[in-house]
């Protein structure tokens, strides 16, 4: 491995931005791209963002910051009986192909973990299809560090 030197200035500027941007968080997540996400949702589910219901039954765990987008852990757990969950999907707004996986827990618990790639700082969505036809949503955001190796 090379020695690594983060671009501290860039990091500081981003943190300052994040702090300054806090009141704006209610309007949108960092790295949100709803137009790009919408196309992927339609393609995968035949439904759009407005058809998704935010739910705290869905727990999406993403790191707040990833040193590189090459290897980012993503974990989804649904607090519903296994028999009520048909599929768990993951989407990243900013990826060239936003639909990352579809998981069918046929006889498993409604839980899935995998390491993914992120193209850049992005909003990430877990969408859960229930057996009674609901689409539940949990959102998170991961900042992909920019920098260089010295």
């Amino acid at each position: 491995m090379n020695r690594r030197a983060f671009l501290k200035a860039t990091g500081a500027a981003l943190s300052a931005l994040a702090v300054a941007g806090l009141p704006a968080m209610a309007q949108g997540l960092e790295g949100e791209d709803l137009a790009h996400l919408e196309k992927a949702l339609q393609e995968a589910l035949g439904k759009g963002f407005k058809d998704l219901t935010p739910s705290n039954l869905v727990k999406l765990t993403m790191p707040a910051i990833a040193e590189s987008g090459a290897n980012v852990p993503a974990e989804v757990e649904v607090n519903l009986p296994a028999s009520q969950v048909k599929a768990i999907h993951l989407f990243a707004d900013k990826n060239p192909t936003p639909h990352i996986f579809a998981y069918m827990p046929i006889r498993a618990e409604p839980y899935f973990y995998v390491r993914i790639r992120l193209a850049e700082t992005s909003a990430v969505r877990a969408v859960v299809e229930t057996t009674d036809g609901k689409l539940l949503l949990a959102s998170a955001s991961t900042r992909v560090t920019v920098g260089g190796c010295g």
């Binding site: 990352i100 996986f101 046929i106 498993a108 839980y111 899935f112 993914i116």
Partner: peptide
């Protein structure tokens, strides 16, 4: 068959997947 994951092109190199039973 007890679980199935369909994956797109955005999974990391040398991937790991975890399931719960």
């Amino acid at each position: 068959k007890v679980a199935e994951a369909r994956l797109g092109p955005s999974i990391a190199t040398n991937p790991n997947y975890a399931f719960k039973f």
